[in-house]
Amino acid sequence: MSETSSSVVESPPRELPPMVYREPTLSERFFDRFFRGLTWGLAWMTVVLVVGMVVLISVDAWPTLRDSGGREFYSVVWDANRNEFGILTHIWGTLYSSLLALLLGGTLGVAVAIFIAEDFLPSKIRLFLKNLIELLAAIPSVIYGLWGIHVVIPALRAGLHYFPSLLADFSGPSMLSASLVLAIMILPTVTALSRDALESVPPRLREGAYGLGATRWETIRKIVLPTACTGILGAIILAFGRALGETMALAMLVGNSTARDNPLSFNPLLPGQTLAALLANNFPEASDPLQVGALMMAALVLLLITLVVNLFGALIIWRASAQFQGLRS
């Protein structure tokens, strides 16, 4: 389209009148102003949305926080009937389940990223594998929850059958079941971002190592991974942020209860609670303003934790992209 119009400018055919440049009319100028203003206004609306979200949630959380003086943060009892809204167990459960998932999904995800990013297989097969892993990310989390209930928990129970002492503790829905499913859900994030980091390692560094007689894995372990480690760390932190905020799989698999005598347990076979699952389970029935306020406070805590983790991860990835400056081109 542009090609034709510019060629018309250069050499107008005889029959047509020559192209005349003209100033924009007044109404065109007005519309230009209006349209620029509109996009500018909407752009700021995005910022207002983010800030407004934090403010709105804070305002709704404030009455509860003011009345209790913040004892929610060290109380382990959530009992709406007694107006007790302790969220320490939920904060603990959120961090614990996410870390456990990160341990499993992160390790596996980085290994998969290496297998796909390094030249083990012909590029067509690698592309196919990459698409399959991305398919994992396309499955809605509620379906992972359903799968967890009907596949993972029965499988775990069958596996634990050989360890009767452990089976006694196992309650079905538990930190372990939830973290296993969570690990699968964060794996595509870890793999995709780690792959980016691995592929951004300059090929000549690999060549240098191969030229010295390094094997493939010596090259990966001693050159590629140390060079890509900042980016991989960023990938893992962003995946952690995702795990912290994940709701459905947790709400369906984590059990949503804790033992009174041992609310902050390390035992992954026991059920637990998380902030996001707390919101999912209690908001639908919440009507009492005090309870809504407490839930808003839990939402605020979740929002702030994920915000800090995500910013940190983004910062690290940004740092990673600026690290090859000494390598002359």
């Binding site: 910022v47 905020g245 915000l307």
Partner: peptide
């Protein structure tokens, strides 16, 4: 702001 929204836990959008 848009990047922050990208990492927003989906349940917070509900809240």
């Amino acid at each position: 702001a848009a990047k922050i929204l990208t990492g927003l836990p989906s349940i917070i959008a509900g809240v």
